[in-house]
Design a binder for these strands. Structure first.
Lengths: 104, 104
DNA sequence: ATCTCGTATAGATGAGCGCCGATATGTCCA
DNA sequence: TGGACATATCGGCGCTCATCTATACGAGAT
């Protein structure tokens, strides 16, 4: 999981289909077929979006036989959000709280 | 300052020029001319991006004579980041801390 | 080995958007 | 009132990217 700049993070999030995938994979492992069925877009499109999220370190793949299961990396999300807050809301109270927890 | 969905927030952040503007206006009031000079893009382009950020409630305009000064709304940023964390990192420790501060 | 199923990649297409020049709007000053 | 300046809007152009179909790759199963 490589570090993600605020720009890369924002661009990875800036698509409805990708956010749908992220919500769907938030607390569970989901196969590509399940994601295809849930999003309603074609399988290649899902694969494309998964590649983007995977490159951003936002989802983790787990190959299992013919299928590949994906899940959202909540820690990566939290760290990136914390970074956003430090850059764009440095004087906010919540930013301090997040920094204490996420940055060590 | 209207409420901002995770998608709208991400799309507003998903541009280098807009992030440059946001950083430049983070803790100070900046005129459009200053922003034009700092970003290096044309004045109409800056105006365009400011309109997007303004519609998202991420920057606050303060007209003063012929000039308009803008500053970043750190509270709006923090709230949106908090929302992102609750949606995409609900099991993370930092999310709980942010929620306690931002959501009332 | 061959077939089938699940996923990834390649190539094409169309919509969205970032950018600029030109122009409109609005404010201050003489 | 007229002119100069700051910002906003308009119209277009080019590029990025989300989507599709077609195809390749890879792992069971027969």
């Amino acid at each position: 999981m490589s570090k993600l700049s605020p720009i890369e993070f924002a661009k990875a999030l800036a698509d409805d289909t990708r956010q749908t995938i992220m919500r769907f994979c938030c607390c569970e492992w989901r196969s590509v077929s399940e994601i295809v069925e849930h999003t309603g877009v074609s399988q290649p499109t899902v694969s494309h979006h998964l590649a983007i999220l995977r490159d951003a370190g936002l989802v983790t793949p787990r190959p299992e036989g013919r299928q590949t299961y994906y899940t959202l990396d909540q820690q990566q999300v939290a760290v990136c959000c914390g970074q956003l807050m430090q850059v764009f809301a440095p004087e906010n109270q919540a930013t301090v709280a997040v920094k204490d927890i996420l940055i060590r």
